[in-house]
Design a protein around this nucleic acid. Structure first.
Lengths: 228, 228
DNA sequence: ATTAATCTGTCATAATTGTTACACAAATAT
DNA sequence: ATATTTGTGTAACAATTATGACAGATTAAT
């Protein structure tokens, strides 16, 4: 086990090396390597192992029967692959997983993972935490996308950012965005000029004031109204 | 324990009564009742317990400081409340939870839940499965919403429905929707007439044929093109 | 079988957003 | 300091979608 480096892996990083060693004792697993272009997993095939990308990078693609392809995600080590699918009702890979580099991937059978959960509550907690965080993240993204107007999305984003900042700076009406306008437009899935227009309109209506990445909320009630 | 009925609860229903009884042995928990209008949990308060709604119903709301309110969800027994937040990094309730009826809610401390995981791998598996299913569900919803055009959403929806049906009826190019046009429009978050127009255009282009809830795919490649 | 309710197809108009383009500001590199 | 890149504000026009409205088709209820 000493040759496996899980540092940076969201479901392992909280565990010490010693603990990881114990965790894998008597656990069956295999490590495969893939070269660039190899297919790691096929869309539609059952997901029976916890696969963790130890080194290299992969991309995930959806492939249709007529051959048309859509890239979904690029993933770099160290991260689990499709961890939400291992235990789901419908445990098949929703995508093709293709190596975009030389890769090492560890595969731990489902039942062995359950044993590992029983053995080390910390590992179990990390795994659940990882999935919980993901669920939370997706919920928030979904809320954002579910708002139809750009002004609404922006209002939601600003109120959210303000709330996060409130924990550190109680009573403030300012916060700093971690995205520029172009990135924000992509995040919302809208065009950049349309976002700029909305910002300038909302500034004109004295609701907010944005300078660089600094957002100042002037009329909070108006922001709230844009949500519903 | 005999008075607690978990039937229909997604994280308990796979377990027999005997097994549930064992599971709760030596486990600390409390059961509270709430009458209509009572606040079960406050937005922003830490989520330290696994709360399962045993009887009654609740609604979840986001409340702003100026008092404006937005209802997020209505939940009826038997279901866990905010199960994704118990183990997440940021374990605070994102919403107010308010009883809309007489309610009984069991609260099991976080650490006790971990003990229960260690005790019964089946319970652990159900819990993880529940969260996994949720992640999967949200991912799919996110993909749908991420497609900008109505035709694209429809194409995605149809291809997905076809794929699900393929497992039962290999080689088919038909499937039956479980929503009518009005419901589908709501699901997509678009207006009903706009959806109807897209359907009729796609029928005119000989891509699909929809009769009642029966969908027939004529030109699958064209559907694929609408995704990207 | 008839009525009532719901669902569907369609239209004109308004509102919102995307596209493309350009000038200028800000940040970064040389 | 200057050049280069990247980000921002703005505009005209095109495309898409929402809104509201209506008639006909389908389904459910009596």
């Amino acid at each position: 086990m000493k040759e496996i480096d899980f540092s940076g892996c969201p479901i392992m990083s909280s565990l010490s090396g010693e603990r990881i060693k114990n965790l894998f004792e008597k656990i069956e697993f295999k490590i495969n390597t893939y070269k660039k272009g190899d297919i790691v997993a096929r869309q539609g095939s059952p997901c029976k192992y916890l696969n963790i990308l130890l080194a290299g990078s992969v991309k995930t693609e959806m492939v249709a029967e007529n051959g048309s392809v859509m890239t979904i995600e690029n993933i770099a080590a160290v991260r689990p692959l499709a961890s939400a699918f291992l235990f789901a009702e419908n445990n098949i890979f929703p995508v093709d997983v293709i190596a975009t580099d030389f890769c090492r991937i560890i595969s731990i059978p489902r039942d062995e993972v359950l044993k590992m959960f029983q053995k080390d509550a910390g590992f179990l907690e990390s795994y659940i935490k990882y999935n919980s965080n993901k669920t939370q993240f997706l919920s928030t993204r979904l809320q954002t996308l579910n708002i139809k107007t750009i002004k609404g999305k922006l209002a939601f984003y600003i109120l959210e950012g303000l709330n996060k900042n409130l924990v550190l700076n109680p009573g403030t009406n300012k916060f700093r965005m971690d995205r520029n306008q172009t990135e924000l437009a992509k995040y919302f899935g809208v065009s950049r000029p349309a976002l700029a227009r909305c910002i300038s309109e909302m500034e004109g209506e004295n609701i907010i004031l944005i300078e660089h990445k600094e957002v100042k909320v002037i009329n909070r009630a108006a922001l709230q109204n844009l949500l519903g």
